[in-house]
Design a protein around this nucleic acid. Structure first.
Lengths: 150, 150
DNA sequence: CATCAAAATGAAAATGAAAATCATTTCTGT
DNA sequence: ACAGAAATGATTTTCATTTTCATTTTGATG
């Protein structure tokens, strides 16, 4: 569609202004955030991301970082997960890995690939749900902690 | 094994004191927490749990609630998950359900059963990892939010 | 039963990431 | 250039969770 759209990100509403050239739904800030996240192999927390952006010369306030991370999640471009400590880490959605997390020491190790890639959400649910991404996490004891406990 | 063990929960170390009758690894407080969590079909946050315990006449300080929730997780008896808001919810591990969470409004709906029940952790990983539980979460847009956006 | 040390508790204070506020700046279309 | 809308960011606020530490409880031993 070739339309001029005003997109109210706060409320998620759209208003068609004119039929013209399509504009990307992504703003400059959001592009910078994505770009920065893509630079690192690991996930970044909001705070880390903010720090890195500044070091890269992309000046941006902390509130802007958090605000736009939320928008990117809602657009299905990034995903987040919580460490046992409560920290939230962000990654581009297209990265295909999940985690093993030790409930004792909190250490997280990456698992390449996704064991449920081919499994679909139960149909009854998908009918009513526009799937953006999923998250799988295994919790247990890492070797160190398991040994320390016995 | 029939032993008298002193278990330092803080550091996870054990000391054999005497060979006698085995004691359950679970304390009275921990039993109360589990009991209370089992009373509700839904998951509870730390705060909610604390409130409910008091209403049930099981007086307990907030710090004790949090402390023992952590211990129960480490013992593999309960599991926790984070809502997009950051709240942490706790459930007994044996409950077999996962979630669909809307990234727009944050609403969470339960999915009975687990799509990955029969899939195992990749062998390379399990070798070094004592699996306690896993968590699977789908994120996307619920019907309401999906419609509101279009 | 008395004693002693280790562990557990809870009231209160501290923490810190994320959210909210709001004055200011930037955009967009006319 | 102008006007209204949206976005920004410095700052403040929030609030669940953690930490601290003095007190209580527990459990083994003589």
């Amino acid at each position: 569609m070739i339309r001029m759209i005003r997109y109210d990100q706060k409320y998620g509403t759209k208003k068609i202004l004119k039929t013209m050239v399509t504009k990307s739904d992504i703003t400059k800030r959001q592009e910078q955030l994505l770009e920065e996240l893509n630079k690192y192999e690991d996930e970044l927390s909001g705070q880390e991301l903010h720090r890195q952006l500044i070091e890269s010369g992309k000046l941006m306030g902390l509130s802007t970082v958090y605000r736009n991370l939320q928008i990117l999640i809602k657009q299905g471009l990034i995903r987040s997960r919580h460490l046992p400590t409560g920290e939230v880490l962000y990654t581009p959605v297209d990265r295909d890995f999940h985690h093993l997390t030790c409930v004792q020491c909190g250490e997280t190790s990456k698992m390449e690939g996704c064991p449920i890639k081919d499994i679909h959400t139960p149909k009854e649910n998908t009918r009513k749900f526009q799937l953006l991404f999923h998250q799988l996490e295994y919790f247990g004891l890492c070797q160190n902690c398991y040994q320390a406990q016995n």
